[in-house]
Simulated scan of single mutants.
Amino acid sequence: MLKMAVLLSGSGRTLDNFHERIEEGSLSASIEVVISNVQDALGLTKAENYGYPAYYGVNNEAINQIIANFDVDIICLAGYLKLYTPPARLQRAVLNIHPSLIPAFCGDGFYGSRVHRAVKAKGCTVSGCTVHFANEVYDEGPIILQKSVALDYDDEPSDIASRVFDAECEAFPEAINRVDELGIDFFWKRSGK
């Protein structure tokens, strides 16, 4: 079982998903701490209500000082909207979920609704999500898992976002379970990075 730190910037929908799946026994992990770079993020309130230690960390240094007080194996970026630099011992243990099938619609500036608007503008008939390890470059770390969703010609960006988020709710816990099963090094070696 992996011990997680969860970083978020907003409402905590992914935190909700993690919590529900841990409770039902389908996610082999425990949440040790939740940290937000937004002081009044709804996700912090949710974390407190779930009984998790919840903190505000203004930047990487502050976040890493908080993490140093907890025994964690991995850090999950759950709607965390800044480039994160982990402490050295967790450099290869940061997981992120991106709302497209990497390498499409990814990199600096591609997040949230921006991705879904770009998918719509291109006329894509498939989108999805990618769970990957994060490194110092947006969306370039080793891929753990991808899930695709079919799109209709008349889907609006909000429809695409809804379908992709449903896929994310399945993909992120599944990816964490795979990391627990296969180990972090498996994915870095597989990618040759």
Rank of each mutant, 00 (worst) to 15 (best):
G123Y: 12
N69D: 15
V164L: 00
V72C: 04
L182P: 06
A93G: 05
C129T: 14
G183P: 06
D180R: 11
D71S: 12
A104Y: 10
C129D: 10
P86W: 04
L81P: 08
L182M: 15
R92D: 07
P157M: 02
A175I: 15
D152I: 03
D152A: 10
E174S: 05
G79M: 04
F186E: 15
C124F: 14
V149M: 04
E136H: 15
P99A: 05
Y80N: 03
D139I: 02
A167M: 01
G123Q: 12
V126P: 04
S158H: 03
I75Y: 06
C129K: 12
T125C: 08
Q91M: 11
A93W: 04
I184L: 10
P103N: 13
A104Q: 09
I176Y: 14
Y138Q: 00
F133C: 00
H116F: 09
A78F: 08
E156I: 03
D155F: 06
A68K: 14
G183K: 13
A118H: 09
A104K: 15
P173F: 06
D185W: 10
P142I: 05
A150P: 01
N135S: 04
A104M: 13
R89V: 10
V72F: 09
T130F: 05
Y84E: 00
E156M: 00
D180K: 13
D166Q: 11
I66V: 15
G79C: 07
N135K: 05
A118Q: 07
S127N: 11
F172Q: 06
R89D: 14
D108H: 12
P87A: 03
V131K: 11
P87K: 12
F110D: 04
S113I: 14
Y153V: 00
V137G: 00
V131L: 08
A78W: 13
I67S: 03
N135Q: 08
A121R: 14
V115A: 06
C124I: 04
Y111E: 05
R163Q: 15
A68W: 11
I67F: 01
N69M: 10
H116T: 12
I102F: 08
E181R: 10
S158Q: 01
V164N: 04
D108V: 10
F165P: 00
R117L: 04
D155I: 11
A150Y: 02
C124W: 14
G79R: 05
P103W: 11
K82R: 15
A175P: 12
A150F: 01
H98D: 02
D71W: 07
A150K: 07
P173R: 13
Q146R: 03
H116N: 12
S127I: 13
G112R: 14
